[in-house]
Simulated scan of single mutants.
Amino acid sequence: MDQLVEKALINIQAEALFSKDNLQQAINKGEEKAREIQVPVTICISDISGNPRMLYRMEDAKLVSLTLAPKKAASALLMQAETKDLNKDTQPNGELYQIETMMEGKLVTFAGGIPIFYHEKIIGAIGVSGGAVSEDQLICKTTVNAFLKGE
């Protein structure tokens, strides 16, 4: 019984992280980092079902980032891994070679997508697009950290 109660409490706490205020403060921190490194991006925060709970495109962010940020979040969620870690396995002779084709273009395997783990359970993912992949990754990591602080 204690395990069920603990599991229920974790689920409630995890859902509380998706409050409008917390989503907004996480986006704000990501945007702050993007402005600091002078890279306009789109940031997408998705829940465990893959539904975007907040999507924000900075002024002057590349229009393609509106498509890629949610795909990066979805890819991190589906694969339960950072998208940067998928790249080497999807190259020719890699274990996951051609998975993007098999997934009809729904999977992104370059940096900028990070799953969100809370108490070792995946609860969602964040995707960032608009800069070089290393810049997207940095902004995404900043956004994930802010989201998990739950300020």
Rank of each mutant, 00 (worst) to 15 (best):
I45F: 00
I45R: 00
S46N: 10
S49D: 07
G50M: 07
G50I: 13
G50A: 09
G50H: 01
N51W: 00
P52W: 02
R53Q: 14
M54P: 07
L55D: 01
L55F: 11
R57E: 03
R57I: 10
R57F: 09
M58V: 12
M58K: 08
E59V: 15
A61W: 06
K62C: 15
K62D: 15
V64R: 02
S65Y: 08
S65V: 12
L66K: 02
L66E: 13
T67K: 07
L68E: 07
A69R: 05
A69Y: 10
A69N: 10
P70K: 00
P70H: 02
K71P: 10
K72A: 09
K72M: 11
K72V: 11
A73G: 09
A73K: 03
A73R: 01
S75Q: 06
A76Q: 08
L77M: 08
M79S: 09
M79I: 06
Q80S: 14
Q80Y: 08
Q80D: 11
A81P: 04
A81L: 11
E82K: 06
E82R: 09
E82H: 04
T83N: 08
D85I: 06
L86M: 04
L86R: 02
N87A: 07
K88V: 13
K88H: 07
D89Y: 12
T90N: 07
Q91T: 01
Q91L: 13
Q91G: 02
P92C: 00
N93L: 13
N93W: 05
G94C: 10
E95K: 10
E95C: 06
L96T: 06
Y97D: 05
Y97T: 11
Y97A: 06
I99Q: 01
I99G: 01
T101F: 06
T101L: 12
T101Y: 04
M102G: 12
M103K: 05
K106T: 15
K106M: 15
K106L: 14
L107V: 15
V108F: 06
V108S: 10
V108R: 02
T109D: 07
F110S: 03
F110Q: 02
F110N: 03
A111W: 01
A111V: 01
G112H: 02
G112D: 00
G113W: 10
G113F: 05
I114R: 02
P115R: 02
F117T: 14
Y118S: 04
H119E: 15
E120T: 15
K121A: 14
